[in-house]
Nucleic acid binder design. Structure first.
Lengths: 231, 231
DNA sequence: TTTAATATTAAACATGCGTTCAACCACTTC
DNA sequence: GAAGTGGTTGAACGCATGTTTAATATTAAA
């Protein structure tokens, strides 16, 4: 790899390294996606990028600024692919886990979602808005069940859609699946069944006598006008 | 515990403060539940317990050993309450969020679930097994839809049930709910509706059994202005 | 009371972290 | 070739962490 780029005319850098910043940023996204922001070290990023730790700071100012740059890059990556195919909502079902770059992007967002930082909150809010739009306008030909509290419904579905990615590591260990794609493939039919028909087949009878005390489902809030939704 | 040597003879604990260890452990559970294991510091635990950092190590040996002790304590706390009411599965819907000790216990388990440690994996596996039992035998009078892949179905439902607790912080900010209990109350009707009837009301005209290729161009409007700073 | 063992603490130690700095090097420009 | 500019590095700084240690306080046993 010759570092001397054949790019003529606008050669602004005396020393050759216009691509180093990109290399560092790519490594940072990978490290953040794998370990999260807190546990990721600048030295680890530098090692993954093949540069010195000081250079990372020199290019991005600080670890926090580097995180912001990664946020922009990942957000851009996902929204670009969103223009191509269906977008965020496909994360719920499947797809976008085959492309390794997209997979790390999803991991990155999930990790930022779990840290108390505010970056993840912006993404979450954006995602809920997106789902809310899907509930109102439909998605890929599907029509959602309507509710009075559309926002709460959108938040609920958004959380459900994100859950498999969040707990992918635990699912992989439990199910023995090799990678994210395999896990999603394993979960896909059950998710589709859940979204289409629910998880419960029958509701409990009102019979008084039973061996166990049961009746645990009847919370003061649990029975609040839940099932009575006729659009 | 209290005395490490010579309980065969009459020499018991000279200066024993059995409540100090308990105080430290309780503070540790709270700190771990709030910040997770990694970001929690021994000094923070000591400060919360009103003791010196060295005493924490003196009583439990190390931070890792203290975590193990907390794991046992939390697991015991939850399984004890499990004997009383329905147990884990109620976490999916509601309940057990009102009792503050139970709430921190749930937070503790969720945090350990998200860290790469192996402690959370044992809990997750246990939880999936529990859900699998519910699918086979039913739960609180409810009957689950049956599937060929009961394990995958149990894992799916377990993940769904855990999701609201995991993303409670994000949900709270998005929905404006004050605490966990309020968030769960807000989500409860939608969760019940999802479990009972699913999320989708109608399917697209083509058969939707395996692949989900959709050519729909549903006007994505996600042009969030994010200020970028590229070097 | 004396003694010995434990509880407890303040300080120190070792390590890893993000960051800074002075020097070096490659390349462009004069 | 000389000078200059910016990429790059290795060492070091300041800080926070988990843990250790020496010393003190406390209390049951002798």
């Amino acid at each position: 790899m010759r570092s001397t780029t054949s790019d003529s005319t606008s050669r602004r850098s005396p020393n050759s390294s216009p691509e180093t910043a990109q290399k560092i940023l790519s490594a940072a996204v990978g490290e953040f996606a794998e370990h999260g922001f807190t546990k990721t070290t600048v030295r680890g990023i530098a090692s993954a990028a093949g540069v010195s730790p000081g250079l990372v700071i020199h290019h991005f100012g600080s670890k926090e600024a580097l995180r912001t740059a990664c946020d922009d890059h990942v957000f851009e990556t996902i929204t670009e692919s969103k223009a191509q195919n269906a977008g965020y909502a496909t994360m719920a079902v499947q797809m976008m886990f085959d492309d390794p770059e997209m997979s790390t992007a999803v991991d990155y967002l999930v990790k930022s979602l779990l840290e108390p930082s505010e970056h993840g909150q912006r993404y979450f809010d954006h995602y809920v808005d997106l789902v809310e739009g899907y509930i109102v306008d439909g998605f890929a030909g599907y029509t959602f069940r309507q509710s009075e509290d559309t926002r709460g419904q959108a938040a609920t579905i958004a959380v459900m859609a994100l859950a498999p990615s969040i707990l992918d590591h635990r699912l992989r260990s439990n199910l023995g699946t090799a990678d994210v794609s395999a896990t999603m493939t394993r979960l896909a039919p059950h998710l589709l069944d859940l979204y289409l028909h629910g998880a419960l087949a029958s509701v409990p009878e009102q019979t008084a006598d039973s061996d166990s005390e049961s009746e645990t489902e009847s919370d003061p809030e649990s029975t609040t006008a839940a099932g009575a939704e006729e659009p």
